[in-house]
Amino acid sequence: MTRALADVLAANIHQYIVQTPIAPGTRLPERALAERFHVSRSPVREALKRLAAQAVVAAHPDGGYAVAEAVMPAAAAATRETGDANEQTYLAIAEDRLAGDLPERVTENELMRRYRVTRAQLNAILRRMAQEGWIERRPGHGWMFQPVLTSAETYRQGYRYRLLIESAGILEPTFQLDRAALLRCRAEQEVLANGGVRTASPAVLFDANSRLHETIAACSGNAFIVDGLRRLDRLRRLMEYRKAVDRDQAERRCQEHLTLIDLLLTDQREAAADFLKLHLHNAVREKTSD
């Protein structure tokens, strides 16, 4: 593990704490952070040590770390400022890619000149994009964008595909509830539903919501269902960023997520499958009405 990886990951975790926001005292499980940032637990552990040294997190009585009771205001403001700048650049790249203003292959120097960012800033953004699956490093030199959904019709087709597979996954004979993973998703959705959705970035909203749907798909025990949904989520990510966020609709979808989770936790699978269909129908109607 490189020092650079731990530094970037620490910055990403700090940004996640500030932007979500996560209440002081909330525990930060290594496994959940590893899943969120698509890394192993070892770099997460090292990143948390760095954040502990900065008083961003503190040791939890039951082990591991929790959000510190008082994150230093200056450090939090600096992190938010850097995170906001990186987020704006990230979204600008996404928009330019969707608009066809960026070629399939690009170099770091080209991107630095175009978006007026430092190499360190660009490296953090490229790492995030690569983790999300819409760009990858070319052997030897440069980067290559991966295919994404680019039209309203393919976007609608994606939702119709989800209607076919997601509710069916809940009714699979191999379905086995991952209660711990679902409870982590519930905690995240509860934060959003209780006001977090009003300030969360489009990327934070997409990640939280896709993580819940993929967690439920993984419970199906059907590798084709979960793999299909993950591939689709990579393809539709940029289309979601392009759409203006209706905060009222987003909050309502988070409330629906809580209902869906509670149906699953109480073993009401048929009701959950029906509710998921309704939820997806509502989402596609709201998002394609413009």
Score class of each variant (00 low, 15 high):
residue 195 G to D: 10
residue 216 I to M: 06
residue 26 T to V: 05
residue 64 G to K: 01
residue 9 L to M: 04
residue 283 A to Q: 14
residue 144 M to R: 12
residue 91 L to R: 15
residue 194 N to G: 12
residue 286 E to A: 15
residue 158 G to L: 06
residue 157 Q to A: 08
residue 207 D to A: 12
residue 77 A to C: 05
residue 195 G to N: 11
residue 42 S to M: 03
residue 3 R to P: 00
residue 214 E to W: 10
residue 101 D to K: 15
residue 211 R to A: 14
residue 69 E to V: 09
residue 156 R to Y: 03
residue 284 V to H: 09
residue 149 L to W: 03
residue 32 A to C: 01
residue 25 G to D: 02
residue 48 L to E: 01
residue 43 P to W: 02
residue 32 A to D: 08
residue 27 R to P: 01
residue 267 D to T: 10
residue 139 P to E: 12
residue 156 R to N: 02
residue 241 Y to H: 12
residue 122 L to W: 05
residue 186 R to V: 03
residue 200 A to V: 11
residue 214 E to I: 11
residue 111 L to I: 03
residue 17 I to N: 07
residue 24 P to C: 00
residue 116 R to L: 08
residue 37 F to N: 02
residue 187 A to C: 07
residue 88 Q to M: 12
residue 104 E to Q: 14
residue 258 L to A: 06
residue 135 I to W: 08
residue 97 R to C: 03
residue 6 A to N: 10
residue 20 T to I: 02
residue 72 M to P: 15
residue 108 E to D: 07
residue 220 S to N: 05
residue 167 S to V: 03
residue 41 R to A: 00
residue 44 V to Y: 01
residue 78 A to K: 09
residue 255 Q to D: 08
residue 134 W to I: 07
residue 57 V to R: 05
residue 174 T to E: 09
residue 203 A to P: 00
residue 257 H to E: 09
residue 245 V to L: 04
residue 171 L to P: 03
residue 218 A to W: 07
residue 113 R to E: 12
residue 232 L to C: 07
residue 57 V to M: 05
residue 270 E to L: 12
residue 24 P to D: 02
residue 125 I to P: 08
residue 187 A to W: 11
residue 211 R to M: 02
residue 17 I to D: 07
residue 105 R to E: 15
residue 73 P to L: 14
residue 48 L to R: 01
residue 101 D to Q: 14
residue 159 Y to F: 15
residue 232 L to N: 13
residue 86 N to C: 13
residue 264 L to T: 07
residue 282 N to G: 02
residue 28 L to T: 03
residue 96 D to F: 00
residue 279 H to L: 05
residue 194 N to C: 12
residue 260 L to C: 11
residue 102 L to W: 12
residue 230 R to C: 04
residue 141 H to S: 14
residue 153 E to R: 09
residue 206 F to T: 02
residue 88 Q to T: 12
residue 56 V to T: 10
residue 84 D to T: 15
residue 75 A to F: 11
residue 261 I to A: 13
residue 29 P to H: 01
residue 251 E to W: 07
residue 285 R to M: 14
residue 83 G to E: 13
residue 36 R to T: 06
residue 246 D to M: 08
residue 80 R to M: 11
residue 28 L to E: 01
residue 224 F to E: 09
residue 287 K to H: 10
residue 52 A to S: 07
residue 59 A to R: 13
residue 3 R to E: 10
residue 142 G to F: 06
residue 43 P to E: 01
residue 63 G to W: 02
residue 199 T to N: 05
residue 47 A to C: 00
residue 173 P to A: 09
residue 15 Q to T: 05
residue 159 Y to W: 15
residue 161 Y to N: 08
residue 149 L to I: 14
residue 210 S to A: 14
residue 131 Q to A: 15
residue 21 P to C: 04
residue 40 S to K: 01
residue 258 L to E: 04
residue 115 Y to D: 00
residue 18 V to H: 01
residue 249 Q to E: 15
residue 24 P to V: 00
residue 259 T to R: 13
residue 64 G to A: 02
residue 178 D to F: 04
residue 195 G to S: 09
residue 186 R to Q: 15
residue 120 A to E: 07
residue 192 L to Q: 08
residue 175 F to I: 04
residue 132 E to I: 08
residue 126 L to V: 09
residue 240 E to K: 08
residue 127 R to Y: 11
residue 66 A to E: 14
residue 148 V to E: 03
residue 59 A to K: 13
residue 273 A to Y: 03
residue 165 I to T: 11
residue 253 R to K: 11
residue 244 A to Q: 13
residue 274 D to L: 12
residue 120 A to S: 10
residue 89 T to W: 06
residue 53 A to C: 00
residue 242 R to S: 09
